[in-house]
Nucleic acid binder design. Sequence first.
DNA 1: TTGTAGGCGTTATCAA
DNA 2: TTGATAACGCCTACAA
Lengths: 348, 348
Amino acid sequence: MKKNITIYTIAEEAGVSAATVSRFLTGKAKVNESKRRKIDEIIKKYNYRPNAVARNLSNQVTKTLGFIMPDVTAPFYGTVFLEAERVALEMGYSILLCNTMNDNVLTNTNVEMNYIDFILEKQVDGLIIMGGHIDNLRTAPEYLERINTLTNQIPLVMINGEIRGLDCYNITSDSQAGINQLVDYLVSLNHEKIAFIGGYMDIQPTMRRLQIIQESLGRHGIGFNDKWFIEDDFSVQAGKDSMEKLLRMSDRPTAVICVNDMVAVGALHTATKMGVKVPEEMSIAGFDNTYLTECVVPEITTVDLQPKKLANTAIETMIKHLEGNMTDKKEIMIKTQLVLRDSCSMAG
Amino acid sequence: MKKNITIYTIAEEAGVSAATVSRFLTGKAKVNESKRRKIDEIIKKYNYRPNAVARNLSNQVTKTLGFIMPDVTAPFYGTVFLEAERVALEMGYSILLCNTMNDNVLTNTNVEMNYIDFILEKQVDGLIIMGGHIDNLRTAPEYLERINTLTNQIPLVMINGEIRGLDCYNITSDSQAGINQLVDYLVSLNHEKIAFIGGYMDIQPTMRRLQIIQESLGRHGIGFNDKWFIEDDFSVQAGKDSMEKLLRMSDRPTAVICVNDMVAVGALHTATKMGVKVPEEMSIAGFDNTYLTECVVPEITTVDLQPKKLANTAIETMIKHLEGNMTDKKEIMIKTQLVLRDSCSMAG
DNA sequence: TTGTAGGCGTTATCAA
DNA sequence: TTGATAACGCCTACAA
């Protein structure tokens, strides 16, 4: 049972009080030059590091941000997280990450709620939530209630969440612009039979995208065939399965917009395997502009959601808030933009 | 400045002492049924959660594991992390993740060393390190020194690290079996001109894999042409560039083993774009068996490193150690295995 | 079964 | 500029 090296160990050996060592450590008050050197020496001798737990308790601040998301493993989420971590670190904060993917997306909100409690117990200074139940159209009432009380307990930033009337910051991808560009582009390529695959109907981003597509098509006087909305999840496998369904139809679309790049990659995979040439016989477009789009041939045309921008806006907004530089703007939109690659061409 | 709700708030209102509330919370001692109910009621009324920071300080234990890796965004690492998080959570631990990717892989070890200090300050109970400098053949001496002292400060588990003589647990992929299978397979397909691309020469996994390939080929009486080892990093782009170099050679290999799946996907991308048919004209194999291999056409033959097994072995070993159920086995090998898909065929 | 008191490692206040 | 001392919120002997 060897004793911990604490600020007292250092103080004693340096012949000063703990308070002085503390001042040396925080740099918040002057310390005599000679004592300063002595303290520094002892600290090095013991390889002493201040105990962050004690420090946090004393300061009532942890310089830690909770980050809840479905799954870092998905390229889009991963990119957002990595950038968030980078920016946070730069600003002296660290991130406590929780993946809720194991939670059932459509029903059980227990995991996510437990995570929230779990994170709060750790006394994070702020909480960032991306994706997940937060944008489920039929969010369980008790969950909504929980989120609501949450906003009184801790500063909250939501990334692409959709719950209205919540007292928190919302960083949102402005899908409108990107989708309009995409639809205009497809129409300019003479596509009129356009499908939309992937995503759950119950979840806002899915519905929202579909809606905007429909409106956008409408502006060109083109209708959307409901049969060509194939609901599934957000995975590569979903893309594979959905594309297969489309290809088995007697009346096929000529272009497919996918709810994200993973689905797009899956769709491309199936089309290619079934001998349907992309883009000659079938155009495919994705969402997110993750690195996946550049892994496959043809490379996939997609809508860039600027994950890094999303991330650093979220972190900076949070930290500004925490450090008292309040922003009055609670709603921040991040532009999206069409990225042209090789997976779309003239409708056959 | 509203007051925090503490164990005292609860105690007072429930008409008991803080100690009793604490007992209720930890369940480590009996408390009278009626008081028990009263306490429970007050806790619910205030939505009270014990402060983990204070608890950690008091217990001298954080139930938190530090996890250092290069980049969660890479599918292999991401999978390992996610599984680690899952298992840890199940066992009552949480994970503090640090990505060192921003650190320059070949030179600067400062970031990684800073991360270590940073994590130690947070008083994690154990540290898990995967990839990174840890296996650089020419690790800076001061870094080695740091790692060495580290093993005296905190339990350490390394995943696929390669520093010898360190007093820590090593969870290592037994590449041998998988690679032998792969080489045997390629040779059985009549390949004799086999290339190896991606990875840094200075890093153990790269060198190790190359070595095993050479030995394995040797057993078949086949030599390895050094010109066909193309050094680069571990990215998709590396695969693209390396394949292009190979294809520009007058004397081309007929099969390419890639240091990981990302490189393999990149290699496939370039081959396809340059009109070289895979696998008919060029066989490609990867490493890791990440989901990427099933995103592309043809799907990629690869060596499965069992990332989940790696992860839960690491976590379980660590927690067993922490909770006193010492294991004497410090070196644990995880089997690897060839996974056949569609990217290899008979040498033309 | 319960309460009191001291400790976990820092920081901050107040005198000196 | 420095040193005592009292928080910070919880846990755990020890005593009752």
